[in-house]
Design a binder for these strands. Structure first.
Length: 259
DNA sequence: ATGTCCTTACCTTAAGGA
């Protein structure tokens, strides 16, 4: 089972680049972030015609997540529990029925800038809610995948210019500590389990020639429960997508599970 | 280098978010 995460930065803007990548990469499951579309406007037929089931959790203008799957889905849940007043569409989860059933959670973690400030407070509160929900899900002892745009640079080697991020919400100590608390539950950073080398990024800003200078950061992650980590066969970043036609500022990151 | 892209709205241009 090949599972990918891809922040597409707008489904309308990516209506050619996303299908092109799907045809080339042939993932079984894709968690999308920043669809920037309400559910009713998502062009689901484009993906259904390619054999994908489509589950969306959108909102107007901003945020919005979705799951595309060539395998059957069960028990779709929308929204991160823990705050009924939170109206941001940043979480969707479903059980994918492969040889082994895998619970896949797609997330778009708040950016948090500027920090300090209310947006940073929201980011940290959201991460605390995610920690609590992940702890609950792990009690099932089933294979779990938490994938998406975490908006967290875990360590210095995950940025080309780590010194440029020291006061940024993506790299501040509280953000990194909250990310480590997820790992401390027993989750595995799939890419790092397979590749410890520096210089691997998933995002290059549209500004200031970041792509041309390879000034990137690694902020799109797939975290695996122990039962999922036992099934891990491979994890890669599809870097070349950033150099394609009308690209997102993020590229797909994927895992292959023996499931 | 305040250098880009995407979306929406008070829509031939600016603003908010990233």
């Amino acid at each position: 089972m090949k599972i990918a995460t891809f922040n597409i930065n707008g489904i309308k803007a990516r209506i050619e680049a996303l299908p092109a990548w799907l045809r080339q990469a042939e993932p079984d499951v894709v968690c999308l972030q920043e669809i920037k579309s309400v559910d009713g406007n998502f062009p689901r037929e484009v993906f259904e015609d390619m054999g994908y089931r489509v589950e969306t959790h959108g909102q107007k203008s901003f945020n919005g997540v979705a799951i595309l799957s060539r395998l059957p889905l069960e028990d779709v849940r929308r929204g991160l529990p823990g705050d009924e007043a939170d109206e941001h569409a940043r979480w969707i989860e479903a059980t994918v029925i492969g040889k082994t059933a895998v619970r896949v959670c797609g997330l778009y973690l708040p950016n948090g800038n500027p920090a300090p400030g209310p947006k940073y407070d929201y980011k940290l509160a959201w991460m605390a809610r995610m920690l609590a929900h992940a702890r609950t899900l792990m009690q099932s002892e089933e294979p779990l995948v938490f994938c998406g745009d975490y908006n967290v640079i875990p360590q210095a080697e995950d940025a080309a210019k780590p010194e440029a991020w020291v006061t940024d919400a993506l790299a501040l100590p509280e953000s990194r500590a909250a990310f480590r608390r997820l790992l401390a539950l027993g989750l595995t950073d799939a890419f790092r389990a397979r590749n410890q080398a520096p210089g691997h990024y998933s995002f290059w800003d549209f500004q200031a020639g970041a792509w041309e200078r390879n000034n990137g950061i690694r902020i799109d992650h797939l975290l695996l429960s122990p039962q999922a980590a036992d099934l891990l066969e491979d994890s890669q970043i599809d870097k070349a997508v950033r150099g394609g036609d009308k690209p997102s500022d993020h590229v797909p990151v994927w895992i292959r599970l023996a499931a």
